[in-house]
């Protein structure tokens, strides 16, 4: 039974991973919905540039993305210095930085899923709601958003899974500090580098698989429930 007993390092990695992923998804969701809306509904010069920017983390090597974050948001980075000076916020080498790295890497997946569902929303229904006396903002929250729900769920699950798996950008941006930035994949990597680490690595591997499966099942159940609601 000793096999199933997690060491404090592994437990910490698991806890931190979940914490970082939840924050990464929760904080990026409003921006993800906004970006999806802008890309799906608006026409403006430079739209393809924005589209490319949103999708950049999908095609760039994660290490490159992490390095960019380090340069921009590190304590002495262009933006990081300003954030520290005026807001007192530091991303470098703490869990917030890990969450930011995860959020940035997961962002394209989130936006793609949300945008797809938004494009599937019948704009005729929104027009009908307008004639019923609802202003554009109210229409968005009472009609558009509920009809996007299945896509938002898919996007959230995808982003959550991607966040849990984030490695390259995290280790480059916030390093591998146990209890601070050492998430599950980082801990697994560390365990493979030390003697006698195989057991721990195997445990973390199994845990990762279980979390991923649970997330998929959850998303499937929720998506079905929403589809059933729309079909009456």
């Amino acid at each position: 039974m000793d096999f199933f007993r997690l060491t404090s390092m592994e437990l910490e990695a698991l806890r931190l991973s979940l914490w970082v992923s939840v924050w990464a998804v929760a904080a990026s969701l409003p921006f993800g919905i906004l970006a999806a809306w802008v890309l799906a509904r608006l026409r403006f010069p430079g739209k393809s540039l924005l589209d490319g920017l949103v999708h950049l983390p999908l095609v760039l090597p994660p290490v490159v993305m992490g390095y960019v974050l380090l340069v921009m948001l590190g304590r002495n980075g262009v933006i990081g210095a300003l954030l520290y000076k005026y807001l007192g916020v530091v991303f470098a080498f703490n869990w917030k930085g890990a969450a930011l790295a995860a959020a940035v890497m997961a962002f394209p997946l989130l936006v793609r899923a949300v945008r797809l569902s938004l494009e599937g929303v019948d704009s005729g229904l929104e027009a009908a709601a307008r004639t019923l006396g609802a202003g554009p903002v109210r229409v968005f929250f009472t009609v558009t958003l509920p009809l996007m729900a299945p896509g938002i769920i898919t996007g959230v699950i995808l982003a959550f899974a991607r966040s849990l798996g984030e490695f390259g950008a995290t280790i480059t941006f916030v390093s591998n500090i146990q209890g601070q930035t050492q998430t599950l994949p980082l801990a697994l990597y560390t365990l493979t580098q030390v003697p006698d680490g195989e057991m721990g690595a195997m445990r973390l591997c199994i845990i990762s698989m279980l979390i991923a499966m649970a997330a998929l099942v959850c998303s499937e159940i929720l998506a079905r429930r929403f589809a059933a609601r729309l079909k009456g």
Binding site: L125, A128, R130, T131, V143, L147, L230
Partner: peptide, 20 residues
């Protein structure tokens, strides 16, 4: 006037009931 301020009831060919 925006549609929500016009006080006009619009009955569409396809009904357009809110499915949710």
């Amino acid at each position: 006037l925006p549609p929500e301020k016009r006080r006009i009831g619009y009955i569409f060919q396809d009904g357009r009931l809110l499915p949710h």
